[in-house]
Design a protein around this nucleic acid. Sequence first.
DNA 1: CCGGCTTTGAAAAAGATTTGCACAAAGGGT
DNA 2: ACCCTTTGTGCAAATCTTTTTCAAAGCCGG
Lengths: 295, 295
Amino acid sequence: MGNDVDRAGTPSPLQLAKRALPDLNGAMLRVAEQILANPDDVARGSITKLAEAAQTSAATVTRLSTHLGFAGYPALRAALAMEVGRGLEAGWASDIGLAIGPADPPEQVLNVLASTQANALRNALASIDLNAATRVADAIAGARRTHIYGEWGDAIPARELYIRLLRIGIPVWFFDGPQSAQIAGGLLGPGDVALVVTRSGTDSTTLDFVRRSSAQGALSVAITGVVSSPVGELADVTFDTGTPVGGTWTEFFAGRASDTLTAGLLFVLVAQRVPDHLTANHPNGPGQPVVHPDT
Amino acid sequence: MGNDVDRAGTPSPLQLAKRALPDLNGAMLRVAEQILANPDDVARGSITKLAEAAQTSAATVTRLSTHLGFAGYPALRAALAMEVGRGLEAGWASDIGLAIGPADPPEQVLNVLASTQANALRNALASIDLNAATRVADAIAGARRTHIYGEWGDAIPARELYIRLLRIGIPVWFFDGPQSAQIAGGLLGPGDVALVVTRSGTDSTTLDFVRRSSAQGALSVAITGVVSSPVGELADVTFDTGTPVGGTWTEFFAGRASDTLTAGLLFVLVAQRVPDHLTANHPNGPGQPVVHPDT
DNA sequence: CCGGCTTTGAAAAAGATTTGCACAAAGGGT
DNA sequence: ACCCTTTGTGCAAATCTTTTTCAAAGCCGG
């Protein structure tokens, strides 16, 4: 997924300029230096602005552009703008690891929350086992019963998945709490699915539910941040959401985001396997999305 | 709302175009669709190429550019190029308009889900009014009662905020359903806070709750995707989460992500205002996060 | 000091972008 | 039904940007 970015069409103007630097002198050198000094302004401005900044004529800028291998100045500028955009994205998501403190200003809190979660999404993208997801979606789509279990905060993505599946006609139930774990586990049988969300993978009642479900012959599925945790040993399928557990705010929000993404993927895959008549007559109209915005 | 802009740097042309889509028709609509369809080509081409592709004149393209809030076509093109660059860096397509189809392979589903939500986070980053967030956090931290209301899918971020605030000792309750709307609204008084999550901003029972709460003198707060909706008129504070409502899967997931981010921000700001003794003795240890990972 | 070579900027030419204007279509009030 | 305002559109002129052309200026080995 995330690889291959580099040779995606346009070459990097900054690298080209830097590499050409030793071979340049005079006016062209000044232009190249301007580009390297503040690519952001160059990407937004015109050729005359750049020429003035480099104390030369527009003709020289055009010459440098073709010298670097571009079709002309507009081509260089476009490539430059894209590279600047890449830099923005990279810088934006690199705030991770930054903890939120009690005295941080709102602006920083929001920034860290957003970038942390975006980064968590990217990690999840690389970590989620798609074959397993396909297998689980098949199982849920064909199951007599699907029971979803999640405690406290883990109930958030669990419940979200529950109401979404419910909406498209899947025989699904949501449970939490120790008594529920016993009852819900006992009700399942072969061909059924038991799905739990547990960030730490160690919650005892959640493990109890998994154990009972497996004993009844159901397929047990866990969404967790720690594959090597007890739930990873017990469950038939364990999803690594790509974000390990941690004690800081940032890790905590990141974990929730990645769990939610995993649950969202499972929902879409199940929805794709549901007969049209169950999903077609929603307010969005047939042919349109298989899910109502309210879900 | 006037604050934003700075945090996000250049505004996202794709997002702006998509948002303006419903208000457009004829030639301008065709231009906007072209931009959304292949931003990559547009970022590299000239105004006349785009005009031809949209079967219109260059003048119309200029008009659309200014209509979207840019200084002119070059400004739009530069911003577009940067956004395309961001997408390249992140390893996913910058296609905001991409929808999930019933037959898409799991790999693509996951990719679109993740990229859509990441984009939504960035949009939320630019849209959320931090002054309003500070004001609401102050109100919740000092309120006698805080009531949170959300129906169906909107209950997900609402309930998440509820259990988090509950965990740190805030006198908070969660409600949904018509009867609850009446009762919960009537219980509030001056100095209290009524907070609703409503993606569309039009749900009648949610509006009922807001109306009753305001009548009792409570501060009413709405997290929504449509500021110009009924709830935007009624509520004292309305948060624009940066993702408008829409009927496609991608817009739907994006909306949830941006609402959740907004709710997360509010939680952190409230937690910062809570006395240490309520948050210090958690398993994470004092000095460390104010919230337990389970929350 | 001279001729060939390269580099450079000025200016013309070509192209891109904006603006002014007239016209046509759509909606609203009488 | 009529007129009037409003809005959107394309054409064409005007402005700005970009490329190309061309001559002048600097450099270097004879």
